[in-house]
Design a protein around this nucleic acid. Structure first.
Lengths: 279, 279
DNA sequence: CGTGATCTTGAAGGGGGTCAACTGGAGTGG
DNA sequence: CCACTCCAGTTGACCCCCTTCAAGATCACG
């Protein structure tokens, strides 16, 4: 809760600055993108001179629709998005969740049309890099090319993670992998890897995992019963990271039993999907 | 069969050329990458002066291992690769299949380590763009940036397709979507969209679809029984593209029945996963 | 022709999809 | 404040589809 308030303050502040100073490059610039992505903008003095539109969105707002013409790449400054495709019958397949420093809309570059939509799950802000100017910008600010490439690469690797998640047969294992993924992600952002604030509904999780939303509920309950996590609405606390990780690693029903990869687990290692109390 | 022989001749020929002429830029250059990706290299005269390593691989050869340090991006000239991750228990999760003009190894850019492996499914050849030189090359040949971006974007969109494929509950629907995907892909390459030569094993398909390989066999049989396709080993002929497409669109077990999106199908439209003979 | 890998088919059993009912919280308006 | 609605989430029951195990068929290769 404090976190989102902090974020709100930040964005309001930024907006204030932007409005206070006049048109001339007072708002966001390419330099903000560089520093967001961990590149020192001082090495690219030009960057601060190129203004960039910042968009702020409320929960439920759409950043871009599926099938719409692509006009920009978006770097997420704050908040969480879901990217998804909608089938003819209205079923929403969630493709990705994007948070701070993640890139959105890159998959539209190829065809010029967004193959997926993106909507905000909470108050969000993004920096928009216009596609028209992309080539020019890259020429003008060489570091931008690397930044875009790395962000796109991360997005791609993230899809690989998702495939690995869906590869698990057992629903509880999928959920465990989902939680491990988010735990690592939160840790990478300097937040606690044990206490997760999920921004998305069970239905969105279900879509992302490729199971029914009732099954997600049941899987949460199962993990709670096993003593691996504690759940309060969308707030998840990982009680035993080791055991959860071990459980998330179990793949097919009947593993070769062979090498257990020597996990020095404190828990009695519930290796295969036989969810037992942790202790 | 004729196809692979043709490819063989091509690559041998190329290799011959490469060996014949001497060190000095005689082999492949960045210009080859540009023309492969549909950009006229004449606009970038510099490109022809930058030599590029070409690698040739036999079926089963590994382009790069999972966990190895990334040294280059690879543009596929010919042949088919599979990209996959290996779990502790040896289960191979196939992430992607890459053919001509596809980009491999891009997901390693972010961390510098390959999160997935790539092995050749047949005789293949690739152009390797060294990561060390990437920034310099982009600066020197601005068009290269766009080419890499577009290829990466396509790879990302391809993962989205895969997610959509795995989103289908019924195994036969997944297989139908898989075939539709390949049909479109082959058509985009100027080949017949009705006759597919699958390069991968049933096991690889199963991994990609997220089902057991026996289920893939059964699903093939079911689609054959329904008269939608004809199968001979790894050779698939699509008999009724319309019906297959309609069937591939069916999502959850009990669709809303609502709008059928008005498909002017010649076949009696087996809308939901009730696989009936097509005629 | 034998050997092993790939592919197919059968049988059995269980996991999860589907449907349904209930809970609880948020928002609305009396 | 309560009645009402709506939606998110949870839990139960039923049953089909897919996983698993097993065996046979077919193909590739030496």
């Amino acid at each position: 809760m404090e976190l989102s308030i902090a974020r709100l303050d930040f964005t309001v502040q930024t907006r204030g600055r932007r409005r206070a100073r006049a048109p001339q490059g007072a708002g966001s610039t390419v330099a903000d993108v560089l520093s967001l992505m961990g590149v020192d903008p001082c090495n690219e003095p030009q960057a601060a001179c190129v203004p960039l539109a910042m968009r702020r969105l409320q929960a439920g707002d759409t950043l871009f629709h599926e099938g719409s013409r692509a006009t920009a790449l978006y770097f997420v400054l704050a908040g969480m998005f879901k990217a998804f495709r909608t089938a003819q019958d209205g079923y929403e397949q969630v493709i990705d969740f994007a948070g701070r420093a993640d890139l959105l809309g890159f998959d539209a570059l190829y065809t010029g049309v967004h193959p997926s939509a993106a909507v905000a799950l909470e108050i969000c802000s993004v920096l928009a890099v216009p596609l028209r100017d992309l080539d020019g910008l890259v020429r003008q600010i060489p570091a931008l090319s690397g930044v875009v490439n790395r962000a796109a690469s991360q997005a791609l690797a993230c899809r690989d993670d998702m495939a690995e998640m869906m590869a698990a047969v057992a629903a509880e294992v999928r959920l465990a992998r989902f939680l491990m993924l988010w735990s690592r992600r939160m840790e990478a952002q300097g937040q606690s890897p044990r206490r997760l604030r999920l921004r998305m509904s069970r239905r969105d999780i279900a879509s992302n995992l490729g199971v029914a939303h009732e099954t997600v509920s049941r899987s949460f309950s199962a993990l709670v019963q096993a003593g691996l996590i504690r759940v309060e609405n969308r707030e998840v606390e990982i009680l035993c990271a080791q055991a959860l990780a071990t459980f998330a690693r179990s793949t097919r029903r009947h593993p070769d039993d062979a090498e257990d990869a020597g996990s020095p687990a404190p828990a009695p290692s519930p290796a295969r999907p036989a969810l037992r109390r942790v202790a």
